[in-house]
Amino acid sequence: MTAALALGDDALVLSHRLGEWAGHAPVLEEEVALANIALDLLGQARTLLSLVGDEDELAYRREERAFRNLQLVEQPNGDFAHTIARQLYFSTYQLLLYGQLASGDSAFAALAAKAVKEVAYHQDHAEQWTLRLGDGTTESHERMQRACDALWRFTGEMFHPVEGLDVDREALRSAWLESVTGVLHRATLTVPDTPDTGAWSAGAGRQGLHTEAFGRMLAEMQHLHRSHPGASW
């Protein structure tokens, strides 16, 4: 069930990060868009975590080291360009991953077949914003490039093996690189030539090792449930 936890935690953590934009997004339409994407991800997380155990126990009672999400999805929202770069990298990965899983016969096939259609909208949203910011003003271009560069070192982990996840990782990686490269080029951005894994953190999210910001995010996400156990709405 390592794989269900890994994919479920990816969806849960990114959903929470996107939810942090509520009340802070640059325009109302974008606030609504990010909240809608977060809701899709939360739905995926509920289904995936329910394959492992009680969804609320898993989401609200686990310690940081028990989370198996990619370090990419826990990265802070940063400026809008950082959020969009994170969305571009992750939604492209998820679209390709779910595409593969949907055609297989694993426990994830039904969810993947459903979610892949939703994620296509997430990827399109990230792509359109990448084009608009990259090929926009001098400042938006610089910020978008900075965000793509800063998050690049978290992308390699997406293609590391996960126990119980039966996918063609090489095909996934090459299709991801081709798609992301195409978008960045059209956005007049440069594909980072730096390593796609950090020196100390390589592949660590899937092993339960997380970056500093994740602890603070979890504290906020879990505090209500932990302070008022069993409370209902």
Partner: peptide, 13 residues
């Protein structure tokens, strides 16, 4: 098209 996501996830504005 104004926005790919509207009042609910299933709608565009």
């Amino acid at each position: 098209l104004l926005s790919r996501f509207s009042s609910t996830a299933c709608k565009a504005l």
